[in-house]
Amino acid sequence: MSKVGRKRARAGYGFISPSLIFYSIFFIFPVVFSLIASFKRWNGLIPLFSAAWVGLENYKWLFGSDLFVSSVINTVVYSVVTVVVGIFISLILAVLINGSKLSGFWRLLFFLPTVTPAVAIGTIWGYLYRANNGLINQILGWFGIKPIRWLTDPKTALLSIMITAIWAGIGMQILIITASLQNIPQDYYDAAKIDGAGSFRIFWSITLPLLRPILLFLTATGMIGAWQVFDLPYIMGTNAPAKSIMTVSWYVYETAFQSLRMGRASAGAFILFCIIFVANILVLRAFKKGGIEGYE
């Protein structure tokens, strides 16, 4: 390595060192601690070292549990639907808003939920979804739609929570997509118009391909967040049949802090990590096939 290269490498190490020191304390220790716990039968009340070693039993038990498997399925459905549908809606709205009057005002409006805590969102939507005196059913009633038991009917419970999650998430996505939209050089559009392309065709063959890198960013970060969803289902979904609504994070939390099975909960947390990890690799692969570089 050249002298300049060495100097830059040294600077590189220097710049990442605060983060690395942080991670080696507040990340490595907890992860190792939990990994050990996941092989033990530990209730959290006795010291970890005196808990019995049970090998892979916690993992095996989870895979045999109906509720845990349902919670994995619910989480998969939730993540894929909220991220894909959320980005799709954001894309449409971003494009529509981009060419509209008052665009700044609309973007601000759509961004409001982003500054609102999940507890508030869950509480408010819980009121709105009420079957007999919620505003949503009242509004639907004006159009002759019969009342829906949003949060208690197993058919709609997860759907309701996904709607709320998408509602809460599109503001940031619209913003990020708009940023890329405005970076597409006007010449591209002009050229397409000369060729006589309609607006849908322009969107499909110019806008969308150019947005792919940003869509990858949104999918990757969105999924990492969505896989860990806890607050909204936990606040809103307790009265629906659990199998139709429980997510892995909720399951892990309840197992750890209500059932006092820290070992089993840690195992659940590691299974969740593996799912997120694999899902992210799949997403990166899919985009790579489409010609988009990943984040290596």
Partner: peptide
């Protein structure tokens, strides 16, 4: 494991209430 057991009974009663 009282709380865990209580949660199990609770969830199964909800299943029955929904006539699942």
């Amino acid at each position: 494991q009282g709380e865990e057991i209580k949660n199990i009974i609770w969830r199964e009663i909800i299943e029955a209430r929904h006539q699942r």
